Simulated assay, not measured.
Amino acid sequence: MNQVTVVICNYNYERYLAAAIDSALNQDYPGTQVVVLDDGSTDGSREIIEKYGSRITAIFQENGGQVAAYNHAISALETEYAILLDSDDILYPSAVSEVMQVFKSGSWAKVQFRLDVMDASGAATGAYVPNTEPPANCGELLQAGWLYPSPPASGNAYRVSALKQVFPIPAPGINRYGADFFAIYGAALVGPVATVRKSLGGYRVHNADGGTVSFANSEQISKAPKALGMRWAILRNIAKSRLEIELPATFHDFGHEKAIFCSSVYRATLVHRWRWMMHDSRGYLHAIVANPFWSVKKKFGTLFLSGLCLVPYSPLSDFVVRYISNPLARRRVAQR
């Protein structure tokens, strides 16, 4: 039986950590190992980890950020397959079994699966991510400059040999976070990606509020575009030096352009909204019209909604921005 490691990288998430570890230990796949790497937590995380004793492998390091934690964890992996579970997320009991069935069907570098969105207490919101399924040839799309739809970190299982062709990642002071970006897209440059068409885990959103433009737990929406651009430049260098693959200097991604759109238009004056749409929206509109993952219906729907941001009534414009940016806002509308 092929062995699988569930790696949990943790920093100051004592209130969620036990749920993540328990979900990894409760997998119905017998060949599951659990490694918990703590990145210098200052809360009670260490005590929680030590209570599990020999049921898990514990690694403690000084705080270096998520990239340093991934570098350390991946270098220590001895199994051929791994899931990198965030310490505030959970896996459902059959997650490892189901991804291993897919790995047996081909030479996949990565198998991804949907995650149900939970609020901070762990209650289901009714939403899930991602909402679009990519094709298997994600590497070709990356070479064309398109970031493919992927779940957050916890919704991905990897062939470890693929990860080790991409990692370690340079981890200077400005590149402490976003390690899952390099795993998600780097693996796709090594081999094909498969998708499980069901939710196999839960993704915790700490501010699970459909009344805001914020959805993911990463950087503030105004900072995300800059961080993503930096990560693309690093991935581009790694692809060229280690994999002999040329990636374009720029990339296309609706999530990236959506962050720019939201930070530019949300709660802005009518004049500013018109000015941005007329002069600065080229990348945003291209990410919709040329999107290789979307249906024609979805493209027209998103264009129509985006156009509503130009109406003089600010509450409608702000509602539309929330609706486009935050899946929980769409869920709230559906429940009415």
Rank of each mutant, 00 (worst) to 15 (best):
Y185H: 15
L115T: 03
A249D: 14
Y203I: 03
V34I: 11
S121V: 01
G139A: 12
H286A: 15
Q220K: 09
G211C: 12
A144M: 14
A76S: 15
A127K: 00
T32K: 04
I288N: 03
V213Y: 02
P168H: 04
E14D: 09
Q143D: 04
F251K: 08
A20R: 01
G122P: 05
L247T: 07
R231A: 05
V160P: 10
G211R: 14
L200E: 04
V35D: 00
A171F: 05
L25P: 12
T125F: 01
A153C: 12
L308V: 05
D89R: 09
K297D: 13
S241Y: 08
V271I: 11
A249F: 11
G186F: 09
A187S: 15
I49F: 01
V289S: 02
R15F: 00
S41A: 14
E219V: 02
H279M: 14
G65R: 00
G139S: 10
D39F: 08
A329H: 03
V34E: 01
I221Y: 00
A95P: 14
W146V: 08
K164F: 05
S325E: 05
E47S: 13
L308D: 00
Q61R: 14
Y177M: 06
A224S: 08
C262V: 09
R159Q: 13
S54F: 14
S161I: 08
Y29T: 10
I221F: 00
S241F: 03
E78V: 14
Y158M: 12
V129M: 02
S107L: 03
Q220G: 14
N71C: 11
T212P: 02
S41F: 07
A24D: 03
L91Q: 09
D39V: 06
P292A: 04
H256C: 01
Y128C: 10
V311P: 05
R159G: 02
F103R: 01
L189W: 01
P130Q: 07
V333H: 07
S23M: 05
L308M: 13
E78K: 07
R242V: 12
A183F: 12
L305D: 06
G139R: 02
D89S: 06
W232F: 09
A95N: 15
S97V: 13
V117C: 12
A124K: 01
M100G: 10
S54R: 13
I8W: 03
H279N: 15
L189F: 11
K51S: 15
L316G: 10
Y203C: 06
R330Y: 00
Y29I: 10
D86V: 03
A233Q: 15
V67S: 02
V4T: 15
V96G: 09
F181S: 06
M278S: 08
A82V: 15
S264R: 05
H279D: 10
A162C: 11
G139D: 07
R114F: 11
S241Q: 12
L147C: 06
Y203K: 01
G178C: 04
Q27P: 10
Y52A: 08
R322L: 10
P292T: 08
D116P: 05
G255L: 04
Y284I: 08
F113Y: 13
